[in-house]
Nucleic acid binder design. Structure first.
Lengths: 247, 247
DNA sequence: GTTGCTATTATTGTCGACAATAATAGCGTT
DNA sequence: AACGCTATTATTGTCGACAATAATAGCAAC
């Protein structure tokens, strides 16, 4: 976990620290997706009172990692194909606009800094060594830089402060290490170029296409998965199958 | 307050009820924008303990009506011109995409229901009686319907669950009763037509233009305001703007 | 054996008190 | 009078206990 969320400032209170720990546990799947959360149990595990645990839970709810119902309790959000696709759709809208704003609002220094970053990523990629990991980190870095470059607090808060925890969760749990490495890299380069040209229209279009490509890639994979399952045996009505078909 | 936020379900716990009350007070400006929140004071005013007040504050923070800092406290979010414009930008992205998805995912019944609603709005507008109020309600109804029509939980939660409280706050505090009544109505009609045609591309474009028009309208008004103020004398442009509405 | 009600248990919501941190007031020095 | 330090006060963070609600187990009737 090198890449740090740029909107998350240093945890000072114990509720903050526990929040980060639980967040990590949920993202990594140590606390399973969809499972119920027992306040007394978690409070005991982290050696804190229920009050401060509830404070941490509130923060988890804010970034959509858990869902609470009155008088019933909290559950870790359930990962699903539909949820993943909905997340992509939302990202496409928000990051597309962020990219447009970045083309308009980024300072020249910010842009050249991002161009430098791209060169480093290029070298790293040339090495073909640990590509998946660095590519993943680099991918996040790139998107963060663009979003911050929008200079729009609302967009930054929504994407970095809320959505990206869910994104990381899906990445971990569905094991998605973008296999479109070199293609994605070229797309990044094009986006940065559009930003440098101050062409907001183009920048938004490219970013949306970039994210939509990932989404369609997933959709294709899902379609294949369904086809494979169908040839084996159709009678096997798994939860997964049902969810796949609905999308 | 006829129009009820469609994502906000009935308040069952006392923290929920107090949350709604404070939310209302903030939106209406009874608790001034930018003011510090004293936990002991508010707890006493609403006759509840600090714990349940803090629960309510967490919910207020979730819909971006207050901001908290560790060991320092909470402040009501500060309304500003930049904040308003950023909000419009974000809405343009999210509602534009929601509209595209609505064209794709709305059922025929939903669409015809929305067309009926439009007819009612048309009649109401013909009466030219209490236009501002009904137009405002109708405007919200329209946008809610489109957003819900996207059938995308992520988008619905972000827009209806979070952004729209801020939108209402700005509407109240800046006293914005859309003066573009008849124009906006025609735009609504066009959007619904695009959705009925299942033309997502067009639907998104029209919705974005619809929201951007409002934004540009504001920007123009602000520009005039500044010009006027400049001729008189400097300083306190924003403060005056905010204060002139309510007490 | 299943269904429906009741009693018990467990979990969540709320409360008041204490601890830790920040804001303020008072004082002394320059 | 202005600055900086210390002591006091006020506010926020954390805790454990109680109240209200939901989940469960046990029993009765069919």
């Amino acid at each position: 976990m090198k890449t740090q969320n740029p909107t998350q400032l240093a945890a000072v209170t114990t509720a903050d620290k526990v929040f980060e720990q639980i967040q990590h546990a949920i993202v990594e799947g140590d606390i399973p997706s969809g499972s119920k959360i027992s306040e007394p149990e978690l409070a005991k595990r982290y050696q804190i009172s229920r009050s401060t645990l509830r404070e941490a839970l509130n923060r988890l709810e804010k970034c959509h990692l858990i869902e609470r119902k009155a008088n019933i309790g909290s559950r870790v959000v359930k990962c699903s194909i539909e949820g993943l696709l909905e997340l992509y759709i939302t990202r496409e809208a928000l990051e597309g606009m962020a990219c447009r704003q970045a083309a308009k609002n980024m300072s020249d220094e910010e842009i050249s800094h991002m161009q430098d970053m791209l060169k480093i990523h290029a070298q790293t990629q040339d090495l073909k060594d640990g590509v998946a990991y660095y590519q993943e980190e680099g991918n996040l870095d790139f998107h963060y830089k663009v979003i911050l470059g929008s200079h729009n607090k609302q967009l930054i808060e929504l994407i970095c402060g809320q959505l990206y925890h869910l994104v990381r969760m899906y990445r971990c749990q569905f094991g998605m290490h973008s296999p479109r490495a070199s293609q994605a890299f070229q797309e990044h380069a094009n986006i940065i170029q559009a930003i440098a040209d101050r062409d907001g229209e183009m920048a938004e279009m490219l970013m949306r296409h970039h994210i939509a490509s990932s989404r369609k890639n997933i959709e294709k994979k899902i379609a294949k998965e369904i086809a494979k399952k169908d040839t084996k045996q159709s009678a096997q009505t798994e939860q997964v199958n049902i969810q796949l078909i609905k999308t």
